[in-house]
Design a protein around this nucleic acid. Structure first.
Lengths: 193, 193
DNA sequence: GTCTATATATAGATAGAC
DNA sequence: GTCTATCTATATATAGAC
């Protein structure tokens, strides 16, 4: 839970990361963006890595909220629809930031190194493909997230209205969902920490 | 037409850009990677921007070759299949580099600023959706490229064999193709319940 | 084409006053 | 919580010898 001063830093950092990449963003830029000096920033976070970590966590929390909402749906079919819809809304609402940040090599490395990030992706995958861990399931999940986050910042859709983009994106995203073995719908309330 | 010395620089730069981002890659890193000094690198390219530009051009040339091959197909249906297939092959063959580079904010800005990059994307779009410039066509094209390039570097598919990834990716990518007005080539219907 | 050496700016980071 | 001042390392970039 970041303080207000920390929240301003994270917010500015996310914007700058999206525009310049993590490696291309300096603490001086962040400080300038919120109108303070570097030392003030260092008083909140002791290193650049800590800022990157906090920014990544803030982004992931948005995804976590969407996943949690989907997990609350009564059937898997509805859960999947809720997940796709929520992810599309999230991506459209943050066109410029979401994709560039999730794809930044530095952030990707953080996700790989810090284990606390993995559960969210696993839960998302479980909502989408259940307990199936086959090839198709994995590729489907990966493709769905990559497609949604990548499309919204594509130059070809830059001029599109949010509403139009959202509806088209949602319709296309659902085509990527793997076929459901509609037999059993997994209990959605279990296994959450 | 890069010299051999220039080609080595570009090759090393592409690897490093993928791993650290453009902003996180210094000329010293590039020089170290190919075993020369910074001054030797500067003798080939007068600035970091020139290296980024040359690297982006090299990547785009690979895409251009795929598009050109697709354009040579006799029918639009075959052209689209060839394009998807070629893009998938390209992405799988360069799992680590393709996506991180195409999504890097610095590269994206280069693509937007330098007009010479745009025609390739327009030709690709024309192969995929013909002269249609509607919303669905634009989102489809954007999503197809984002999905292919983004999936291959997703952690979820990191352990997958190239062959498996390629076949799954191709099958899923074809689901994103918009319906063709002329004749059906797939049993895949355009609208799903 | 590659080197040594160097100029200048800015990076990440810390100390200590207010 | 924010500042000034400062440290050290490294960034981009150039000059000129081999």
């Amino acid at each position: 839970m970041p303080s207000t001063a920390q929240a301003r830093i994270i917010s500015a950092a996310l914007e700058l990361f999206a525009e310049n990449g993590v490696g291309g963003t300096s603490l001086q830029m962040i400080a300038d963006a919120i109108g303070v000096t570097k030392a003030a920033v260092y008083h909140q976070y002791h290193s650049k890595d800590e800022i990157v970590l906090a920014a990544a966590k803030a982004e992931l929390e948005r995804v976590d909220a969407v996943v949690r909402a989907a997990e609350g749906e009564p059937t898997q079919a509805r859960a999947r629809k809720a997940l796709v819809s929520g992810m599309v809304d999230l991506a459209v609402a943050h066109r410029r930031t979401v994709s560039s940040i999730l794809n930044d090599p530095v952030i990707v490395r953080f996700f790989a190194e810090h284990e606390s990030f993995r559960p969210v992706m696993n839960r998302m995958s479980r909502v989408l493909v259940g307990t199936d861990v086959g090839h198709e399931a994995r590729v489907s999940t990966a493709m769905l997230t990559a497609a949604i986050s990548g499309t919204v910042m594509h130059p070809l859709v830059a001029g599109l209205d949010d509403e139009v983009l959202r509806s088209q994106l949602q319709r296309l995203a659902e085509r990527l969902l793997p076929a459901m073995n509609t037999k059993r719908t997994q209990s959605q309330s279990a296994t959450r920490s």
